[in-house]
Design a binder for these strands. Structure first.
Lengths: 258, 258
DNA sequence: GTAGATAACG
DNA sequence: CGTTATCTAC
């Protein structure tokens, strides 16, 4: 069972790349972020034609998350992060797929920090931690996955010193990521590759990808015990090199049967 | 000697189509309109690579005219229509090419009429007639060519009754086109094809091209005597059917040696 | 419908 | 840099 997360940066602009990736890399369960399309403009038919079911939470211009599954039913649980009925941003979706509890998230970027956007990010994280704690208590296999917009540690960014004041790397944000792990969640990529330099995002500008000036901000957080079923994980770097590609690469992990 | 006029509707958006047309149809002298690009963004190198010299009069967003010539020198005469130093719109360019006096023009659309835009159109036409009269007096071979935004007669529009109040077809505008002809200028297309239905423009919307819901608004006006050298003229309809094409088709005429 | 400019967001 | 939306013009 191959599970992947991919910030597409515009599902319609990315459609050829997305479809090619689905066809060539065949992930079983996928969380997408930054659809940047209203619900009615999600290319459902094209996704269906390559064999995927899908549920999504889109909004007019920005954000937007989806869960795709290949020949598997997707049972939606909720499509909003609890804790703030006023929150209009479509950044969260939760479903049961193949007995797995999947939470797809697109955590706020938060820049510039400090400021209202950073405040929103911190509040969003607090709401998310609350939901994460509930899920831990359920004691069922669960994955929190998506674009966290959090660089967990110095080794997850090409030049840490340049990022100290950035909302993706500020100490209070990293601390929240640590606290999630203290709840019991396991950072799958780091669990399998404790020391390796692994990036999932490279800015479009200044040839960031060819210079490998990247960040690791797309993550899988596994509920306790699930790590025993994860033997392989990685980043589809090749996709980041395709024409008209996203600034993120797809990130994947393989889940073995118990 | 093949001479052509083509409203490209954005020279950069149209570059593949323009280059393909130049390579396949090999016009010797070309007037372009609606470059929609500032002078520094005219793709000079690409045009040069397919064998054309060029001069242009571009402006930031709209309008913009150019003269291209294949292996021929272009001697610029002026790049503004005389008569209003305040006029900022780049709609006129004049040059000597191969002994021919070429005036490339993009006459204002003028809609909605009545209104300031229509007033500007009428004033522009008056200035243009003045220059045209001067050119007639010079008694040298000269062609006024480009997008006139004038439908000369009922047979030049698919549904005349729908266009009576349009700035392209209003009686006072048609009258000005007639007056140009009274100065001595000869409408080359109509001279060769007195009765044929010939269109040069089809709206993008409502499948105007496939319904042949077109207009004839791109013209060649020949100085007296030049008509004897023109034996063939037409519209490159095929180009209007290409991918990412302009709403105008290229219009051409062939000039024989005396 | 299409193009270009601009603004917002990342 | 690059995506989407809005605006303007045609």
């Amino acid at each position: 069972m191959k599970i992947a997360t991919y910030n597409v940066n515009g599902i319609n602009a990315r459609l050829p790349v997305l479809l090619r990736w689905l066809k060539e890399f065949k992930p079983d369960i996928v969380c997408l972020q930054e659809l940047k399309a209203p619900p009615e403009k999600i290319p459902e038919d094209a996704i269906s034609e390559v064999g995927y079911n899908a549920i999504w939470h889109g909004q007019k211009r920005w954000n937007g998350v989806a869960i795709l599954a290949k020949n598997l039913e997707i049972e939606e649980i909720q499509r909003a992060l609890p804790g703030d009925p006023e929150d209009e941003q479509s950044r969260y979706i939760e479903a049961l797929v193949h007995g797995l509890h999947i939470c797809g998230l697109y955590l706020p970027n938060g820049n510039p920090a400090p400021g209202p956007k950073f405040d929103y990010k911190m509040l969003w994280i607090k709401r998310f931690k609350k939901r994460a704690k509930e899920l831990i208590k359920e004691n069922k296999p669960c994955i929190l996955m998506g674009d966290f917009n959090i660089i967990p540690a110095e080794k997850d960014v090409y030049k840490p010193e340049r990022w100290v004041d950035d909302a993706l790397f500020r100490p209070e944000v990293r601390k929240e990521f640590e606290e999630l792990q203290k709840q019991g969640w396991i950072d799958a990529i780091r669990f399998l590759h404790p020391e390796e330099t692994i990036y999932t995002f490279w800015d479009y500008f200044r040839n960031a990808f060819s210079r490998n000036a990247g960040l690791r901000i797309d993550h899988f957080l596994l509920s306790p015990g699930l790590e025993k079923q994860v033997k392989r994980a990685g980043v589809d770097l090749e996709v980041r090199g395709w024409e008209k590609t996203s600034d993120h690469a797809p990130v994947w992990m393989e889940l073995e049967k118990k």
